[in-house]
Structure formats: C-alpha cells, structure tokens
C-alpha cells in the first residue's frame, strides 16, 4: 500500500488521475475502521488533510461554498447561523472526538443512507462540487447518490466542496436513535422553509437506499402554508405533511428498526419539525 500525501489541490487531482484506485482519506472516521478490521486493502491512501483549500469556506456569488474538509466541529462553531439545519445534524454525529475529525466531504464520500449531514443538505438544496484534472462540475446533491454507498463520482474525481444557496429561513433536523450520542440514525428528517420564495426543502435519512426528498410533501407546504399572514398552522396540513413524508420513504427492516416503525417515526419527526420551524417563522415575522 502507498501513502500519497499531496500538499496542494492540483497535486491531489493529479495523484487521483494517476491512481484512480487510491482511497481518499479525510478525517478517517470511516476509512480507518475499514482498514483496522481488514475490510478494505486499497492500493494506496490519498491523504487530503494537508490541502488548505478543502478546509476553507466562503461566499461564491449567491452561494455559500464549504470545502469538503470542514469538520463537524467547525460546522457547529463557525456555521451554525448560516446552516442551522446542518449544524443541528452535526451536533448529533458521534462524539466530540469524531466531530473534531469527521468531515461533511467524508459523509458525502461514504454515501451511507444514514449519513446525518445528508438530509440537511437535501433540504437546503445543496450542490456537490466534483473536480478532476478534466475539470469541475456541480450537481444537485439529490443527483449525487445512486444507491447505498454509491455515487456518480468518477474514479478520477474528488469532492471539492458543497454549496448551499444562502437564503434565510427556519431549518430543522431531528434524528431517532437508541441514545443521545454515538448512534447511527434509525431514521432522520430535515426541513428547510424558504419564506422569500415560498419554497420548502426536505430530506429523509436512513429510510431508503439513498437519502431521499419528499417532493409531494414539499409541494403541499409550499401551497398550503399561510406564508403571508404567518397564521397558526392548520392542523390538517400538519397531519397530511406527516403522511406524505412517511409515504416518500422507502425503508427496510434491519437491525436498527423495522420499516413500519421508520415510517411511523418519520411522520412524527415531520410533524414535529414543521411545528418548530413554523413557530420560528411566526416569531421572526413574515
């Protein structure tokens, strides 16, 4: 096994092009478990932790661009105001030790349907930026995942960053697990309200082969929420929203829970996060 340690992004892309089998390693919180337990023996590790650009974030036109190497700990301390939903999810990841090391880029790279950063990215309408020596492309995060642990990333590509439209509005995230820390989600749900455009974003975690959007549920809220008056939430809308979110999931029975429980829990999380988000909207004013 080789250890490739590029100092710049250009070197990293060249190394990946020359060694498409090399396994990128960022925080290592997924990769090292696989290596320690002999589940994977890549021809080389491609260490991305020396590339300064990957750990930076800033604005890019109307978008907020966050380097793939930004850790959960930094999302929480530096970006909680701009990305409240992602920060809520980041607070539920692992333990302080894991959050100090684990990155959102690694969560995208692993592409587990249970990845906690992924539902908030879906709800926020994020883009993923992929790069190779051939060029750069950006695609909606919903189009990035093709199946459990599978993505459209080509063997010579690396994840450079993710980008989020910087519109304001209430974001929420909720996750079901067997304790408050160190749990893989039984299921999770993220919601983003965009009052300026009257749009709504959703993300369902751990209840399908990939993280999923609940498109019908999004349309329901966009059409039925009393955006202008910021009036009390109509109960019928809340109930219907829960049903549509549960219906959008494609869960299976596994060691962490049954499909039926996941659907039930998702309808509860959907109603709960909607109430929280709408309360915030009413407080802040339309």
């Amino acid at each position: 096994m080789d250890f490739l340690s590029p100092a710049t992004w250009a070197e990293a892309l060249a190394a990946k092009a020359a060694n498409p089998d090399a396994l990128p390693i960022a925080g290592g919180t997924d990769v090292m478990v696989e290596l320690n337990f002999d589940r994977r023996r890549p021809s080389a590790l491609l260490d991305l932790t020396r590339i300064g650009e990957l750990t930076e974030w800033g604005t890019d036109g109307d978008l907020l661009r966050i380097g793939s190497g930004v850790t959960y700990a930094r999302i929480i301390t530096e970006l909680a105001h701009r990305l409240p939903g992602l920060a809520m999810a980041a607070r539920t990841v692992g333990s302080p030790q894991i959050r100090n090391r684990g990155t959102v880029g690694g969560n995208l790279g692993s592409a587990s349907p249970a990845g906690d950063a992924l539902p908030p990215l879906l709800a926020a309408g994020a883009l993923v930026e992929l790069a190779s020596t051939r060029g750069v492309r950006r695609l909606p995060v919903a189009e990035f995942f093709t199946g459990p642990k599978r993505t459209v990333r080509a063997p010579d590509e690396l994840i450079a960053a993710f980008l989020v439209p910087s519109h304001r509005g209430p974001h929420q995230f909720a996750k079901i697990g067997s304790r408050n820390a160190m749990v893989i989600a039984v299921c999770s749900f993220a919601l983003a309200l965009r009052p300026v455009t009257g749009e709504v974003g959703t993300g369902i975690g751990s209840a399908g082969p990939t993280p999923l959007r609940a498109a019908q549920a999004e349309r329901l809220l966009a059409d039925e929420l009393p955006w202008r008056t910021a009036a009390v939430l109509p109960e019928a809308v809340v109930g219907r929203f829960g049903e549509l979110v549960a219906g959008a999931a494609a869960p299976i029975d596994d060691i962490r829970g049954t499909a039926a429980y996941r659907r039930h829990a998702l309808s509860v999380l959907a109603r709960r996060t909607l109430r929280w988000a709408w309360e915030e909207y009413r407080r802040e004013g339309p």
Partner: peptide, 10 residues
C-alpha cells in the same frame, strides 16, 4: 481525537 482513526502518515 481517536488515535485509532488517524492514519499514522496523517
């Protein structure tokens, strides 16, 4: 950090 999850080369 968890030293078991950091590659030596890192």
């Amino acid at each position: 950090v968890c030293a078991c999850l950091v590659a030596g080369g890192q």
